[in-house]
């Protein structure tokens, strides 16, 4: 396939994935708006007023970037995990496997769908947040980098999960037992400076902490850990995830017998 055909092939898959997100918007776009709206009401308005400022910002402003990031990564993950596993389960993944579409087009096409959903959901949460507070923007490029790189990383994670999954239950294990604990302990609702030393060290071993921290820096201009570590970590994990996904698709893990 020449470059133009590759582009068409990638665009078709991406378009299909985005159309899926929009078609089932009550399952993909509406839930984060409602869930995070409740978070803003409870943690921002009801409890937030009782909590003193963190690093110079009202509590609701402090938690907002974390909530956007949390929404983005969980939605990116679940989009690819669910879409790819459904394609495996209903066997319409064979439409792509029999075509000359290269492995990297398939991987990046599904990831693009996950990124689009993650970013849209993040934007929806940010828009909902505007009803409760002002959202400062310190550095838009930092925000964009962290949002896109995190969405991409967790789309790849969703793809890996779907490749290895044999039944629908298998794609809920990672969100339930890995993703949720890591996001809640990633400094979304607090600054790790408030934690005892041991918990602070444990938090530094949580990759999602760096995503929340760097993303929050893009809004508020404050951070708890090294931004460089966050950037390198995100870039590195994306490369590892991409290489692993490509390898597994090439070998046909979970796809070919």
């Amino acid at each position: 396939m020449n470059a133009y055909r590759l582009y068409i092939s990638w665009l078709t898959l991406t378009r299909k994935e985005v159309m899926r997100v929009l078609r089932i918007w009550t399952q993909t776009l509406l839930p984060p708006a409602i869930t995070m709206g409740i978070y803003f009401v409870v943690f921002g308005s009801f409890l937030g007023g009782q909590i003193k400022e963190i690093e110079g910002y009202p509590y609701i402003q402090f938690i907002l970037p974390g909530l956007v990031m949390m929404t983005c990564i969980t939605n990116s993950f679940s989009n690819v995990a669910s879409s790819f596993f459904s394609a495996k389960f209903m066997r319409h993944i064979e439409e792509m496997l029999v075509s000359p579409m290269p492995d990297w087009v398939m991987v990046t096409g599904f990831v693009a769908g996950g990124v689009v959903r993650g970013v849209i959901c993040g934007l929806i949460v940010a828009l909902v947040g505007l009803f409760f507070t002002h959202i400062p923007i310190y550095n838009f490029l930092i925000i964009a980098f962290y949002l896109l790189a995190s969405a991409s990383l967790f789309s790849l994670a969703g793809l890996l999960n779907a490749l290895m999954a044999r039944k629908f239950d298998d794609i809920s294990i990672v969100p339930t037992f890995v993703l949720t604990p890591l996001t809640y302990f990633a400094g979304t609702f607090y600054s790790i400076q408030m934690l005892p030393e041991t918990w602070k060290k444990i938090s530094l071993a949580n990759p999602i902490f760096y995503m929340v921290d760097g993303f929050r820096y893009g809004f508020l201009g404050v951070h708890d850990a090294s931004l460089m570590v966050g950037v390198v970590l995100l870039g590195g994990l994306n490369l590892v995830g991409l290489a692993l996904s490509m390898h597994m698709v090439k070998k046909g893990v979970g796809l070919r017998s």
């Binding site: 068409i8 898959l13 299909k16």
Partner: peptide, 15 residues
């Protein structure tokens, strides 16, 4: 429509 049309796209055939 999409089932057939998308398949053409996977083969790199323009819209």
């Amino acid at each position: 429509w999409n089932t057939v049309n998308f398949q053409a796209g996977y083969y790199g055939i323009d819209w």
